[in-house]
Computed example of a mutant assay.
Amino acid sequence: MAEITAAMVKTLREKTDAPMMECKKALTEAEGDLARAEEILRVKLGSKASKAASRVTAEGLVGISIQSDGKTGAIVEVNCETDFVAKNEDFINFVQSIADLVATQNPADVATLSELAMGDGTVESTRTALVGKIGENIAVRRFKRLASEHGLSSYVHGGKIGVLVDIKGGDEVGKDVAMHIAASKPRAIDEQGVPDADKEAERSVARQKAAESGKPAEIVEKMVEGSVQKFLKEVALLSQPFVKNDKQSVAQMLKEKGASVQAFELFVVGEGIEKKVTDFAAEVAATAAGNA
């Protein structure tokens, strides 16, 4: 039996917002497996257990660059330690420069990007100098570059959520779609594009919930498939209700406009990053006790 520590309970509670005792029970049942414990809580508590998991914890900015032809662009995420630095002009300029470089130079990965020329040195030397000047760690986390036959549109919300869309149909509908994606956060254009891992995770949770109903196996399987189909409609862009008119789906809106989405990229600052939370009062108290 794996030892369930207070730190493990705290981590699960921060990810799920579930009561502490429920977190401990789930970890015990999962024999210390955090991912399995989170799944158990989702089965028991439903959507409550997934609310905190989507919260953004790291700081930084999303930057977007679209070239003058309107058909080549890039979206990047650059992280820092505090929101204060994310508002620093030097940091903002650095993020935009990174986006411009990705759009024009098309580096293969972050390591290759780091070696590209920037200013009097490279991206890496510029980053290092900025760390020294600002006094916080800065990291280029990820980027995507899109090349479109039709045109690119974008939307950035508060520097924290960024969307780049390859769309046929014009910039006006493109901006509407980009704003919708930022608000509704689809995982794919259509249901077929939803990653298999996401489908299987949802199927696993649905099967456990359905099994608790005590219904016959064939009914349980229908309940499971019904839950999975509902999930796919919720996370596929085309089947989502359009944010500016929820009486029609995104697919219906696009058809009405004679438009179609070819691809999109959605970045949310800090998504999936665990941020260390410092209890300064406890830290001071511990230091004082150590000096006593």
Rank of each mutant, 00 (worst) to 15 (best):
V102R: 11
V102C: 14
A103W: 04
T104F: 00
Q105D: 08
Q105R: 14
Q105F: 01
P107F: 06
A108C: 01
V110S: 07
L113V: 01
L113N: 00
S114L: 12
S114G: 01
S114Y: 06
E115I: 13
L116S: 04
L116P: 04
A117P: 11
A117V: 12
M118W: 01
D120M: 06
G121K: 12
G121P: 06
V123K: 03
S125Y: 01
T126K: 13
R127V: 03
T128S: 15
V131F: 04
G132Y: 02
G132V: 06
G135Y: 04
I138F: 07
I138H: 03
I138P: 07
I138E: 03
V140T: 09
V140L: 11
R141E: 12
R142E: 13
K144A: 12
L146I: 15
L146W: 05
A147D: 08
E149K: 14
G151F: 05
L152Q: 01
S153Q: 04
S154V: 00
Y155M: 07
G158N: 04
G159K: 09
K160N: 11
K160A: 00
K160F: 03
I161G: 02
G162T: 12
G162S: 07
V163C: 00
V165A: 02
D166Q: 10
K168Q: 14
K168A: 14
G169L: 09
G169Q: 09
G170H: 01
D171M: 11
E172S: 12
V173D: 00
